[in-house]
């Protein structure tokens, strides 16, 4: 009896599938898709909760929030979030770059790019999405059909074709036809919400506030750990020459246990009478290199006490005569 019911349901499911493919839906194209209506979206408990949790404005429709959770799928029923995600990424990238460049104007470009990735990369946005409480839709189409899952429940979850399908515990199938992993899909949903925030509010200032409150200020980034110097002493010498400073000189400040098994040397780098950096090491050479690294870090991680952003309403730096020179090329 049960098997007959399942068989009947599968047959009708096949019919539904056949119908959907005949409407020529492509994964990327949104032209032929039906739109999530506000009426259905209002009934979705997940969408209502997420909307309230993020304190989204009333102009941010629940149906738009539902679209933000729709990633590219083979048989797209609803319009996907690709455009919104790209737009959200543009907004996020600008604000992340602006914040870092204004806070640390001397950051080398590779460190800057890594820092941007650390703030708004897929990994970070995935954890932010999870904190926001975005649920992932892991049930198959058959399971949904058999459970008679209502549409409003489905649209409240993050929907995507997962590249990694977990069959059993400790067994995952990697389907390379699907391009999205859970991490990427969640990140695209977060980016889409940012894009949709602008679409709903039509205000760059309000969107900026949302980005700062919910994304940029939620993570602490250790920028100092992102540096890697190949020739720190040479780089420091080149930097001093470029900036018109006296050539760096390393001086031993103090030492202990030179003849012992574990000596410690405290060394500082000076340019004229100005101390540029200081560090210690188990040998004079190590201490010298560490002191040069410290001096370079002091230079690159310079930060103004009063950070103003070009996107602030009252911003103006007309008195600015010099912009950061750029990295030191050794």
């Amino acid at each position: 009896m049960i098997s007959k019911i399942i068989e009947k349901k599968l047959v009708s499911l096949q019919l539904v599938r056949g119908l959907s493919s005949s409407t020529a839906r492509s994964a990327r194209n949104n032209a032929f898709n039906t739109v999530i209506t506000e009426e259905v979206a209002t009934k979705s408990p997940q969408l209502v909760t997420l909307h309230n949790r993020l304190r989204l404005p009333g102009s941010f429709k629940l149906s738009t929030l539902g679209r933000c959770l729709t990633c590219i799928q083979k048989d797209n029923k609803y319009p996907n979030n690709v455009g919104l995600s790209i737009f959200g990424k543009n907004l996020l990238s600008y604000h992340a770059t602006e914040l870092l460049l204004m806070k640390y104007p001397r950051l080398p470009l590779n460190v800057l790019n890594n820092a941007i990735n650390g703030i708004i990369g897929d990994e970070t946005l995935y954890s932010i999405g999870k904190e926001w409480g975005i649920q992932t839709d892991s049930s198959t189409a058959v399971e949904k059909f058999l459970n008679e899952e209502p549409e409003e429940i489905t649209i409240g979850r993050l929907r995507f074709d997962n590249q990694n399908k977990s069959i059993e515990s400790n067994l995952t199938v990697i389907d390379k036809k699907n391009t999205l992993t859970q991490e990427v899909a969640m990140a695209s949903a977060v980016k889409s919400i940012v894009g949709a925030y602008y679409a709903s509010s039509k205000s760059l200032q309000d969107t900026k506030k949302f980005i700062y409150n919910y994304i940029l200020t939620t993570r602490h980034l250790k920028i100092q750990d992102m540096f890697e110097f190949e020739q720190p002493t040479r780089e420091l010498a080149a930097l001093c020459k470029r900036q018109g400073l006296e050539q760096p000189v390393t001086r031993l400040l103090s030492e202990s246990g030179r003849a012992s098994k574990r000596p410690v040397f405290l060394v500082a780098v000076f340019s004229g009478n100005e101390k540029l950096g200081e560090s210690f090491g188990a040998s004079l050479r190590e201490a010298k290199i560490r002191a040069s690294v410290n001096a370079l870090m002091n230079w690159y991680l310079y930060s103004s006490l009063d950070v103003k952003l070009p996107s602030d309403a009252d911003y103006s730096r007309e008195t600015l005569k010099e912009v950061d020179h750029g990295i030191v090329i050794v």
Binding site: N29, N30, A31, N33, R67, P79, A196, A199, S200, K202
Partner: peptide
Amino acid sequence: ASEGASVE
């Protein structure tokens, strides 16, 4: 203009 559904 685009073929897809617009957002606001």
